[in-house]
């Protein structure tokens, strides 16, 4: 069930120089959201910026009936959002989109986050640990940033007790290099193989790389894709990704376009073609 509601901003927290965490009181989204879902938020009552902005659900609190988003200031929309004050109301549509497929078997789970890709994967990690279906020793979290000051949620990750491996492009913390390099290097050690569930979110280039690696090694990897979305409801067909079905049905191998907002944002990395 999708809701449209005016929801109150409970808190706005500046995590790094350009990274913000907003918390909204919204029982419907707190209760209904699954890891991978997103909220479509109206930024302004003015006509510029005109369109809503989509944000992955970063956290929910069922008791306090809140949900959180995490975002970086990249343009006018996110700048306005970062200036919203506690107590203000915003028009929210959600929860929207599909969600990560959660494994019910005892197997290795590897979460691969790059930069802001931490948002949906943090929600997923908390969900997996809370569900207690999977032993936390089976969960690895690979997290890459440009530099050490950009990392967020390290305390939370430690608390969750999942195996966390960090990497920075400038080498100021953890491994030096991109998180996809780390993924490749640690592939064997982390037991990444056909029976493993991989979840990944990050910038477009990283998603492309993860998609290529998944195809090359035939890995089951779910990507959370991001794009501009006018409606968020599947009505406008504006937010599509090239999609090739990877199975034995008659449609296998045929390229089509899928809407990221309703057919995604979660896709099997072997089934999408990214630019």
């Amino acid at each position: 069930m999708v809701f449209q509601k005016k929801v109150k901003l409970i808190s706005s927290e500046k995590l790094t120089s350009d990274l913000f965490r907003l918390r909204f009181f919204c029982p419907e989204v707190a209760k209904g959201a699954k890891p991978g879902n997103f909220a479509h938020i109206r930024i302004s009552q003015n006509t510029t910026p005109l369109l809503r902005r989509a944000f992955s659900i970063f956290d929910v609190d069922l008791k306090k009936k809140t949900f959180d988003i995490l975002f970086k200031v990249v343009g006018l929309g996110t700048k306005i959002l970062s200036e919203k004050k506690k107590g203000e109301s915003l028009d929210v549509l959600g929860p929207l989109g599909n969600s990560f497929l959660i494994s019910s078997k005892e197997q290795n789970l590897v979460l691969v986050a790059g930069g802001m890709g931490i948002a949906p994967l943090m929600f997923l990690a908390s969900y997996l640990v809370k569900s207690e279906k999977i032993k936390r020793e089976k969960i690895s979290f690979l997290y890459g940033e440009k530099t050490k000051n950009n990392f967020v949620c390290l305390g939370q990750l430690k608390k969750l007790g999942v195996k966390t491996v960090l990497t920075t492009e400038d080498g100021t913390k953890g491994f030096k290099g991109k998180v996809t390099d780390l993924f490749l290097k640690r592939r064997i050690k982390l037991g990444i193989g056909k029976n493993c569930f991989i979840y990944s979110c990050g910038p477009q280039k990283m998603m492309k790389k993860m998609s290529e690696l998944s195809k090359k090694y035939d890995l089951f990897c779910q990507l959370s894709l991001e794009t501009h979305m006018p409606c968020g409801l599947g009505a406008c067909f504006g937010c599509v990704v090239k999609y090739i079905k990877n199975d034995t049905t008659p449609l296998a191998g045929q390229a089509t376009y899928k809407r990221i907002c309703v057919d995604g944002p979660i896709f099997d990395a072997r089934e999408v073609e990214l630019d």
Partner: peptide, 30 residues
């Protein structure tokens, strides 16, 4: 939404972009 005789995949992405007080679309009758 527009209906055509045969199904249409539409144009390649990106298909939309925001402009001052408006938006551009090029869905291509998907």
């Amino acid at each position: 939404k527009s209906v055509t005789l045969n199904p249409r995949e539409g144009n390649p992405p990106p298909r939309t972009c925001e402009t001052p007080s408006g938006m551009l679309n090029s869905i291509g009758l998907a």
